[in-house]
Structure formats: structure tokens, C-alpha cells
Design a protein around this nucleic acid. Structure first.
Length: 318
DNA sequence: ATGTGTCCGCAGTTCGAGGC
DNA sequence: GCCTCGAACTGCGGACACAT
């Protein structure tokens, strides 16, 4: 590859011609040894690829687990022995007997949309410059304040649209997978403004915990309902109306229990994310090991005849 | 070797209908 | 007439393919 780097041309489309390929210098061991190296690499690289595939499967399972933890906790609670009752809502099934089912509108004080003026392409430069949120700020598991655009100096900011801790943001328009994404603002952002594509919900905090409702909105059942309710002819930008949010059924435990559930979910999420990070690191290491093994085998740094006799392969330091 | 076109996913902006 | 909200249109960037 190093020999080809200087020969590969093209600015937008990188291409290698036949000539540099034909002129590539390489070491050529006897034919029998070439076959031995190829066989050795087939076996060893295959093992590494299988290990990497297992790690990929593990990551997929952990992500499923993360979703299942949220969905189970916000509909069944933390006590596996709690008596259950029928929720009366088909997609919600059974809930603990001491929980209520209410419409989200019954715990919402205000729901509002923001303002999307023509902004700069770059984010606000520091917390003192005014910025307008982009819808992508609620994608993923956390609110991302850096997803904003700087408000031009000639536009007057609307301070009533700035963010406060406890604001629950929901995207009202996006692709089917992302529309309805919810995130909780954890601290005040005096100079960040709500955009037109986001709903902001403020709750009766004596009845409903914003953390609990945010997690509920991320559960697989709610995602399913939102994807069904999303409307619009353009598949790249589906919409949900306020009524979809406000009329949605919400299983509501006592306030203290909502807090316990939210804390428990966040702790589980951290543990699962740590495992996902470990698996991703393992995949990176395996990929590095794969490249190093191929390089060492084809340059004679590994004696594949000896390696064939041993299951463990040691490479000479480069 | 380089420039240009196309497709796709994602997101920003604008427009129009309806309610007040 | 203004505001809200839903829908459609538009733009951007990355990846790739094709043309010159």
C-alpha cells in the first residue's frame, strides 16, 4: 500500500492504474512457502474475522438489551413481584396495579414550538453568543447543546425561547427513525433558543418527572406509536403533530418511584454503554492485529512452518 | 488524472390552510 | 391580519460512477 500511495491519483475518486500495480516490488518466496503462507493466513485471519463478528453481534445484543431495559422499567417498574393490572391500552399491555394511566396532556403545563430564523452555518461561539438549536440536538440518547447555529448579530433574540433545566424537547419533524426523538435539558442555556422543529414540554413536576417521561418516550412501544402516527408525503421529513404527543397514554407510577426508575435506567445504561465501548475497542484491536498478521506473514517475519505446528503465533517486533 | 453528474440520507427553510 | 402547525420544497455533503 505504501508503494501505491504516491501512484494513486484523483481528487474526488481515488484510482490505481495497472502500471504501478504491475511495477509493485515484492518478496517472492518459493512456491511451496507461498502456499503455506496463504493457508496460514486463511486460517488465522478467519479466526480473527470470526472473533470480530462475535463482537459485532454482542454490540447488537447490548443495544437491544439497552432498549429492553428502558421499555420494561417504564411499563412494569422495578419490583418483579408487584401485582399487575390491565392498562386498558392495547400497546401498553399490563402495568403495576398501583400505577395510573393518564394522557400526557394531563401532566403537561405548556407545549410550544420555537423559531427558525436564517442563521449562520456555524455553531454559536461560546455560551455568550446566541444560537438556535438544530433538530439533531435530540438525536441519540442525550441532549447535545453543540447542535446549534449562531444567530446573526442583526437579528433580535427571543429570550423567552431560551432553554431551562427540565425542558423536555421532542423533534416534530425528521426521518421515520428520528421523528419524535426526545431529550431532556439538564441545565439552563440562556443563549440557546428553541427552533421551530422542536416541541418544548414543561411538566407539572409535582406529578410527573421529566426524566421519567423522557425515558418513556424513548421506549420501543412509544417509538412504534410515533412511527405509525408520523405523517407526510416526503419520507425524508415526516411530521408528528402536538396531538400525537399530548393524547399519548402514559403509565404513571407515584413520583418517588418515577425517580427511582429513572435513576436505575441511567445506571444500567452506563453499564451497557461501557460494555459496548469494550466490544468496540476489541474490534479495533482485532482489525489492527489482522493487518499486522498479514503484513508479518507476507514479509517473512513469521515462520509459518513453525506457526503451523503451534496454535499460538508470536510476531517479531516491527 | 481530473472534472462532473447522480443518488441518497439528513436536515433547514418556506409556504399555505385554518383558527382566533 | 396574525399566529400556529403541518406539509412540501430545497439545500448540503458524502459516496460513487461516468465522461473527458
Amino acid at each position: 500500500m505504501a508503494q501505491w500511495e504516491s501512484s494513486i491519483g484523483g481528487a474526488t475518486f481515488r484510482a490505481l492504474n495497472l502500471e504501478p500495480l504491475a511495477n509493485t516490488l515484492g518478496c517472492l518466496p518459493p512456491f511451496a512457502e507461498q502456499e503455506a503462507i496463504a493457508g496460514f493466513l486463511d486460517r488465522e485471519v478467519g479466526k480473527i474475522d470470526r472473533l470480530a463478528a462475535e463482537q459485532e453481534r454482542l454490540i447488537a445484543l447490548l443495544k437491544e438489551k439497552r432498549q429492553a431495559v428502558i421499555s420494561h422499567a417504564v411499563t412494569k417498574g422495578l419490583n418483579p413481584n408487584a401485582p399487575l393490572k390491565d392498562s386498558g391500552i392495547e400497546w401498553l399491555c399490563q402495568i403495576p396495579a398501583h400505577w395510573e394511566v393518564v394522557r400526557i396532556k394531563h401532566v403537561v403545563v405548556t407545549i410550544e414550538q420555537g423559531w427558525s430564523p436564517q442563521c449562520d452555518a456555524t455553531p454559536a461561539d461560546g455560551p455568550e453568543q446566541w444560537g438556535v438549536l438544530k433538530v439533531g440536538c435530540v438525536n441519540g440518547d442525550r441532549f447535545n447543546a453543540s447542535e446549534n447555529k449562531a444567530l446573526p448579530d442583526d437579528l433580535e433574540p427571543l429570550p423567552e425561547l431560551s432553554l431551562r433545566a427540565g425542558d423536555l424537547l421532542i423533534s416534530r419533524a425528521n426521518t421515520r427513525e428520528l421523528v419524535g426523538s426526545a431529550a431532556l435539558v439538564e441545565q439552563d442555556h440562556d443563549h440557546l433558543l428553541l427552533c421551530d422543529k422542536l416541541y418544548r414540554l414543561r411538566l407539572q413536576t409535582s406529578v410527573a418527572s421529566p426524566e421519567f417521561l423522557t425515558l418513556f418516550l424513548r421506549s420501543s412501544m412509544v417509538r412504534g406509536q410515533i412511527e405509525i402516527a408520523a405523517s407526510g408525503a416526503s419520507s425524508s421529513m415526516l411530521n408528528i403533530g402536538q396531538s400525537v404527543i399530548l393524547e399519548m397514554a402514559l403509565p404513571l407510577p407515584p413520583l418517588g418511584e418515577q425517580g427511582e426508575i429513572a435513576t436505575w435506567i441511567l445506571k444500567c445504561r452506563e453499564q451497557i454503554e461501557a460494555l459496548i465501548n469494550d466490544a468496540q475497542s476489541a474490534i479495533t484491536l482485532l482489525q489492527e492485529r489482522r493487518a499486522a498478521l498479514i503484513s508479518a506473514a507476507v514479509t517473512g517475519k513469521i515462520d509459518v512452518r513453525a506457526a503451523a505446528a503451534n496454535t499460538t503465533v508470536e510476531m517479531e517486533p516491527a
